[in-house]
Amino acid sequence: MRVEMSVRGRIRAGDPEAFRQLFDDHARSVYNHGFRLTGDWSVAEDVVSLTFLEAWRLRDRVDVGGEAGALRPWLLGIATNVARNVRRATRRYAGALARLPPPEVVPDFAEEVAGRLRDRERLARVRTALAALRQPEREVLALCVWSGLDYAEAAAALGVPVGTVRSRLSRARTKLHKLVGAGRLDPPRGVVAPPGENTEPPGGRGQVSVDRTIAVRFAQENAR
């Protein structure tokens, strides 16, 4: 009798349908995590695409004997590394632009739209909060507080001991609470959260605005 392979086994074997399902199940979490680490909507979309391309490249490292739910920490770990690389590339690009003559200022009339202004204000609060933290603290805060991973899952995603995750998260929360208490920070909901609170934005039936075709292209080509 034929024994059906698990989802993890199919992903490891390069099954494009299993990889497409992986994208559908976790793209939103990867997108949210990418945005929290980069503070930029469009860069977060790049993080999603690059994360799933990298996941396809690293598919042979998936443990077929593990639990299906552990694929999310695995993906968020990849996304964390991708976000680091993207941020470094962005800094290099910004440095190159800074050496160029300043461009002519063109008014952005879209900023007059109330909805966009509200988005910019929320984004500014997120950036203010995250700017107060070191990169390792930002990453742990994003994984544990916003993405809802427990200490063990976050440790696996980052490749560090559980104790390191606990200490980084504690330092991050202490810093943010001090800033809030001093009136220097007014963070959005979830930046300073009680321990254990899951502030992952609610999922919806709609998919984030990233073309999953990019993420599964290699899988489809290899299946031909």
Rank of each mutant, 00 (worst) to 15 (best):
N32C: 05
H33P: 01
H33L: 06
G34H: 05
R36S: 09
L37P: 02
G39W: 03
D40H: 04
D40P: 02
W41E: 08
S42Q: 07
V43P: 00
A44M: 04
A44Q: 04
E45N: 07
D46V: 06
V48C: 10
T51G: 01
F52R: 01
E54Y: 03
E54Q: 13
A55L: 00
W56S: 01
W56F: 04
W56C: 01
R59Q: 00
D60G: 09
D60P: 05
D60V: 13
V64Q: 00
G65M: 04
G65V: 02
G66Y: 01
E67Y: 00
E67R: 03
A68M: 03
G69M: 00
A70C: 12
R72K: 05
P73F: 02
W74R: 04
L75D: 02
L76W: 06
L76G: 07
T80L: 05
N81M: 05
V82Q: 05
V82E: 05
R84F: 13
N85Q: 13
N85M: 09
A89Q: 15
T90P: 04
R91V: 14
R91S: 13
R92M: 14
Y93V: 03
Y93E: 06
A94V: 10
A94H: 06
G95E: 14
G95L: 14
G95Y: 07
G95T: 10
L97P: 06
L97S: 03
L97D: 04
A98F: 08
A98R: 14
A98V: 07
A98G: 12
R99E: 15
L100P: 09
L100R: 15
P103I: 02
E104W: 10
E104N: 05
E104V: 15
V105C: 10
V106Y: 04
P107R: 08
P107Q: 08
P107E: 09
D108M: 07
F109P: 09
F109E: 11
A110M: 10
A110V: 09
A110T: 12
A110S: 13
E111L: 11
V113C: 02
A114W: 11
G115T: 11
R116T: 01
D119F: 10
R120D: 05
R120N: 06
R120E: 08
E121R: 14
R122N: 07
R122G: 07
L123M: 09
A124I: 01
A124E: 10
R125N: 12
R127C: 00
R127W: 01
T128I: 08
A129L: 05
L130W: 11
A131C: 07
A131N: 13
A132K: 11
L133V: 12
L133M: 11
R134Y: 15
Q135P: 10
Q135Y: 12
P136A: 07
P136R: 08
E137A: 15
E137Q: 15
R138D: 08
L149Q: 14
L149A: 13
L149S: 12
D150P: 02
D150M: 03
